[in-house]
Simulated scan of single mutants.
Amino acid sequence: MMIWLAIPLTAVLYLWVKKLARRYKNPLINTIMLPALLIIALLIVTGQDGNAYQTGTQPLNRLLELAVVAFALPLYQQAAKIRQQLWPIVLCCSLSALISVSTTLMIGGLLQAKPELLASIATKSITTPLAMSVSEAMGGIPAIAAGLVIIVGMMGAIIGLPLLKWAGVHHPEAQGLAMGASAHAIGTGAAAEAGPVQGAFSSLAMVVCGIATAILAPPLFHLYLWFIQ
């Protein structure tokens, strides 16, 4: 039964939460987090098999892979602005990746976290496929990496833009770069809802930070292992 209800249920909950979000303008009313929590609660209460739900939503998963290509449109629309500031953007995103990985390793080291756990956490701010691949190459656990990526993305989508505005960051390009650098694809979706400029620069930051993390994380992790030995 859940196989056939999976897509209608997902669509109805998403549209309902989206309507609530437009009406109440509350960052906690998130179109990704709330439907996910409601579906989890429903599966638990009714005793339905989560695998059946996952099977039923396979068509949506395939469309999601194609939808990522749509991020190219705002990039194309903002191409002139991006070309004018390309190297500062690359530098900022690279520094963001460096700080993210370094602080994770330092804090993990102070807490005496196991190396395989640190390898899984270090890729928390890049998109899921890259995070799983890079963490596995460092000896991490891909499932933990994927879970953390989702958690970080949801947190960024919920509090990212309000936090930036509270901190006095009102420039749409800066907002977009911050969202893409810290909250990857989920944050980019939230940035795109804020405006086309935010969406374009968030898409760019997501790509650049993903590449930078894939390059920087392995040597930094091995340097950390050498230092603690």
Rank of each mutant, 00 (worst) to 15 (best):
A67D: 01
T55Q: 15
Q58Y: 11
A52P: 06
Q48Y: 11
T57K: 01
T57W: 00
P35S: 07
L64N: 05
A41Q: 11
D49W: 13
L64T: 08
I44S: 06
I40D: 09
Q58S: 14
L64W: 06
G56V: 04
I40G: 04
N51C: 08
L42F: 04
L37Y: 00
A52G: 00
Q48C: 12
Q54Y: 05
N61M: 12
R62L: 05
N51S: 12
V45S: 05
A41S: 10
Q48R: 12
E65S: 06
A41L: 15
T55G: 12
G56E: 04
G56Q: 03
R62E: 12
L64V: 15
A41R: 00
A41C: 15
A52C: 07
P59M: 14
I40M: 15
V68G: 01
N51R: 14
L63R: 14
P35Q: 03
P35E: 08
R62V: 08
L43A: 12
V45F: 11
A52W: 01
E65I: 04
E65A: 07
V69G: 10
L63I: 13
Q54G: 08
L38H: 02
N51W: 09
L66A: 14
V68Q: 01
E65M: 03
L43R: 09
A52M: 02
L42Y: 05
A41E: 03
A41Y: 10
Q48W: 14
I44H: 08
N61A: 08
L43P: 01
P35D: 06
I44P: 02
L64A: 13
A67L: 13
R62G: 13
T55A: 10
L38D: 00
Y53M: 03
A41G: 15
G50S: 11
Q58N: 10
L37P: 02
T57L: 06
G56K: 02
L37H: 05
L43W: 07
I39G: 02
A36I: 04
I44W: 04
E65P: 01
T57M: 07
T55I: 13
N61W: 09
T57C: 01
L37E: 01
I44A: 08
A52V: 12
L66P: 06
A36E: 02
V45I: 09
V45L: 08
I39A: 09
R62C: 03
Q48D: 15
G50H: 05
V69Y: 11
G50L: 06
L60W: 05
Q54H: 03
L60Q: 14
T57P: 04
T57S: 01
A36M: 09
A36K: 00
L38T: 03
G56M: 04
P59H: 11
V69P: 10
L66S: 12
G56F: 02
P35A: 03
Y53W: 11
V45E: 02
T57N: 08
D49R: 10
G56T: 08
L64Y: 04
V45H: 06
I44L: 07
L66K: 12
Q58K: 15
L66N: 13
E65Q: 10
Q58T: 13
V69C: 12
G56I: 05
N61H: 10
